[in-house]
Design a protein around this nucleic acid. Structure first.
Lengths: 178, 178
DNA sequence: AATACCATGTAAAGAGTTACATGATTGG
DNA sequence: CCAATCATGTAACTCTTTACATGGTATT
């Protein structure tokens, strides 16, 4: 049920529609949680039924009615309750490392894939750095709640930097292996 | 279908039973792939039906028959084929970061959870370091295929070291936030 | 006597992915 | 005119988790 809690956290920060949440899960939250619009719409429906969210309809001309969700008192209580429950660390399931494990079968293919991933991580890192320099230029001046959000961005930076460094280290090890 | 490929990689390194694979997925491979025994037994059955694995039965007295799986020529071909196909980087879905995102609702709870995770990461790091010092003391003397496996262990080390450092950094940021 | 380990599975529920589907508006 | 963006959803499928189930052996 963690998608539900991620949605609670997002909607508690600011109410929004399924579509907007999909965007947010691609940008700021996408850093540590990924969800497709199908998942989000389904989950929002469930959560509204459960009483965690309330729905405000905003009809528009020529467009589907906007369904703006916001967190109810029960929803906030559920979020607070969940914050106190210990959770195991995220599980890692990484194709690239499976490939490296069997890398002796085709070192060139693995090397190519490492280079590709290196580029993807470098891109993400650049995106996060731009975000940090832009919206979070002076973190100590931010409202309190946003300082916590800034700390999640720092996690993204640290995560991408680590993979980038590991790709480089591994590529040179492969060079030496020949 | 990536569990299938992780199993191919594991069984290509050395044939084994579902139970043994479950152990291996807890130890060396658990570093980058996690799978429960239920998943593993089911997937092994499917893969055998598909012709990727062959099965050798070793009856035992007083115990269930051991079912030792090994990779067939088709299985190896499937693994080699998969090695060449580009794959997106692993997705991260981390409860802890969702909690931090909503951390303003209960900073103390988040701090406690960070400390708990810090300890878990420190434990894992120690386990990997012991493995590196033990089985992989002289990596350059290892057989070629195991040098690739060693590189996946280095990923685990890097990953845990990064989370540990991030936990520390974030904990001191929380101190300052008060 | 109890716990842990070996060794295998089934069933059901929950979460996530992929494909399909619609229709207006805006920018190049 | 085509592609992208806004905005919503359904259906089918796959993958993962949790719970249930059995039974012998070894250790404390």
């Amino acid at each position: 049920m963690a998608l539900a809690h991620a949605l609670l956290a997002a909607l508690h920060q600011e109410p929004g529609t399924g579509y907007e949440l999909t965007r947010r899960f691609e940008l700021s939250m996408g850093n540590f949680w990924q969800a497709s619009h199908q998942q989000i719409y389904r989950e929002l429906g469930r959560m509204a039924q459960q009483g965690w969210l309330e729905l405000q309809l905003q009809p528009q001309q020529g467009k589907p009615t906007r369904k703006v969700y916001s967190v109810t008192t029960e929803g906030l209580a559920a979020l607070r309750d969940w914050l106190q429950q210990p959770q195991p660390p995220a599980v890692l399931r990484d194709d690239l490392l499976v490939k490296l494990y069997a890398g002796a079968e085709n070192p060139a293919a693995v090397q190519a894939e490492l280079l590709r991933h290196r580029a993807l991580h470098a891109d993400k890192l650049a995106t996060y750095q731009a975000l940090a320099a832009g919206c979070f230029a002076c973190p100590q001046d931010l409202p309190r709640a946003e300082q916590f959000i800034y700390l999640t961005l720092r996690a993204g930076l640290s995560y991408e930097r680590q993979w980038l460094a590991w790709c480089d280290e591994t590529l040179s090890a492969l060079q030496e292996l020949g």
